[in-house]
Design a binder for these strands. Structure first.
Lengths: 219, 219
DNA sequence: ACATGTGCGATTGTCAACAGTTAGCATTCG
DNA sequence: CGAATGCTAACTGTTGACAATCGCACATGT
């Protein structure tokens, strides 16, 4: 049986809004008025509400009762929170993933590592970040835990938004970790080295933290 | 400023439904028909939809498109998933918590450990489980990461539901870990021993896993 | 000048009704 | 007798309208 994935109206709306938020078309803090969106997309407010509820779940918008919803403007504090949770989840993920990786998974990781570096050197940071997110996603998928994967996805969205909005203020965010850092994760998983993989993930986040802390000092 | 929490209609509905699900009044698999609930609570379908969406987020109900929502009937697989994610999050949480624990936090942990054991010996398992969840929640709150705490809360709901429904089938689930196991977590946090706390959490979940695996074999 | 009260516009919360889809059952045809 | 087809009732997805609430600006009084 072919699973044709018919999207509900609110899913289509949510996808569209998510894109507009992540590509910066809807800047942080922008108000999302249900009636406006309804007329813009030619639907009623019901699906709009559902879509906004989903984006709120993902942390891309904030929803103040009786006062409407607006695009989340995430701060330093949020960045730290997201990274802490992602680190915890990914450390768990690699431990589970080591038993289940297939050759295709490893090939995809290699491909994404290369894509990240290429995009970085080509100067296309958003593309590099997305490839990096996809890289992390691969081994989280390998963990074979649907709940974990969904959480990672939602946090990845928030991370992308954070990077985008933060980059607008701090040019020093225009970087990705040197490819060796994430590669160590891939290598450890490939070698079925659980503790090594956990260390590699910790190292990756430590590196990122240090780099961000450095920014805080030098800016 | 005092945060008085005025509840939206859907929140009230969600709380009520959550209770009814967790105390077994609404058994696993029970269909939740929007119109029925609307007339039962004397509201329209709108707030009911919002409430169901929230419960779906928490994993307490499943939502099949165009076919309505019903109380989640979680399986062995789900139990494993939830525990894996909880373990990952809590290992991260204790690492963050060691720096931030206050005397009140430690007192509350002690109190909850005692409450768990008392309720267990008094034969009131649901109470014991809830106290245990609250215990875990304390050090997750100490981590000072709102996102992490919210995830832990949602997973705790699922765990309670799992325990309840599983208990109905397997009497051998009628237990809690010996109080020493969670106490080691509290002790390590109190001693500001980060790696020890991580080990204690891992140990706790390992113990639970073994016990559950034992059930699978002996039942 | 400052605090307090009041009216207005904007926006969400809630409701009731319509339309499309689904599962189950009866019916028909081979 | 079995499989495919066509109905039917139940339910969700969606809509448009109404009511309640909030923020803001202006007026009023001290």
């Amino acid at each position: 049986m072919v699973q044709l994935d018919h999207k509900q109206l609110w899913e289509t709306v949510a996808d569209r809004l998510r894109d507009e938020i992540l590509d910066g078309h809807l800047p942080a803090g922008a108000r999302l008025v249900e009636a406006d969106l309804a007329s813009r997309f030619g639907v009623s407010r019901g699906p709009i509400r559902d879509a906004l509820a989903d984006l709120s779940r993902s942390g891309l918008v904030v929803d103040l009762p009786r006062r409407g919803t607006s695009v989340a403007s995430l701060r330093e504090q949020d960045l730290a929170e997201v990274y802490e949770v992602r680190r915890a989840l990914e450390e768990g993920a690699v431990r589970m993933a080591i038993a289940r990786g297939t050759a295709e998974d490893f090939a995809e990781m290699d491909r994404l590592l290369a894509a990240t570096e290429n995009a970085y050197h080509a100067g296309s940071l958003p593309v590099a970040w997305e490839a990096d997110m996809a890289f992390h996603r691969v081994y989280c998928r390998m963990a074979g835990n649907g709940r974990l994967l969904e959480l990672v996805d939602r946090l990845a969205s928030q991370t992308l938004l954070l990077m985008r909005t933060a980059l607008a203020e701090h040019a020093s965010l225009a970087w990705t970790p040197p490819v060796e850092v994430p590669r160590r994760i891939a290598d450890a998983i490939r070698a079925r080295d659980g503790e090594g993989a956990v260390r590699a993930v910790a190292n990756h986040y430590q590196y990122t933290e240090d780099r961000l802390a450095g920014r805080a000092k030098t800016d």
